[in-house]
Simulated assay, not measured.
Amino acid sequence: MASPEERIADLGLTLPEVVPPLAAYVPALRTGDHVYTSGQLPMVDGKLLVTGKVGAAVSPEEAKEQARVCALNAIAAIRSVVGDLSRVVRIVKVVGFVASAPDFTGQPQVVNGASELLGEVFGEAGRHARSAVGVAVLPLDAPVEVEVVAEVR
């Protein structure tokens, strides 16, 4: 069975460097058998490639892809704490925040971008509990932000 790192490579992805914090927090923290990530924005090479509200300036499909970027950044944050992604026993919980136009109600489909990537990388261990929440605005006018809780050994 392929390791999570091998699955990432098989998907044609590269695990990025951990996104530096925008304020007074750490990207991920381990306590006991769990790693909690801070909210991860869809940063690529230190920049947001897409900004705005989903259902207005940002299409749901584009936001779903940005949620996938958030999940990749969360995986990088988890790896920065545990060293080897094979130490992830299970992705326990995902919380996705979607900066939404007032009439947009497709938050679950947007956050599927993160959930689907976690499933592709961790297999059955990537199946998780989840919340998808619409919000008025996110840091830097990001369209989506994702937090992950992982059980590790």
Rank of each mutant, 00 (worst) to 15 (best):
P139I: 11
E17T: 05
V69I: 12
G106Y: 05
E62Y: 00
R153K: 14
P60E: 03
G113T: 00
P108D: 03
L138S: 07
A99P: 11
Y25A: 05
A9G: 12
K47W: 06
V88N: 12
E120C: 07
D33F: 09
A142Y: 13
E6L: 01
Q66D: 01
P20D: 03
V152I: 15
S59Q: 07
V144G: 07
E17I: 00
P143T: 15
G12N: 14
V92G: 03
V44H: 01
E65M: 11
P42I: 04
F104S: 02
I91P: 14
I91A: 03
T105C: 00
T14Q: 12
R130G: 13
A57K: 03
Q40Y: 06
L15Q: 11
G96M: 01
L117R: 09
P16K: 15
E116A: 01
I75Y: 13
V121Y: 05
L15W: 14
L118N: 11
C70P: 05
A101K: 03
Q66V: 04
F122D: 06
I8R: 04
A23N: 06
R90F: 06
P42S: 02
V50L: 14
V152Y: 15
K53F: 00
A57L: 05
C70E: 02
D103Y: 01
P4R: 11
Q107T: 07
V135W: 00
V148F: 09
S3Y: 08
P139H: 10
S86T: 14
T14H: 10
E145D: 06
R87A: 12
A76H: 15
R153L: 04
E65D: 11
K64N: 08
S86E: 11
E120Y: 08
V81C: 09
Y36G: 05
E65G: 00
K64F: 01
A132D: 10
P143Q: 11
P27Y: 13
V35I: 11
V19A: 01
H128P: 07
E61F: 07
Q66T: 10
P108S: 01
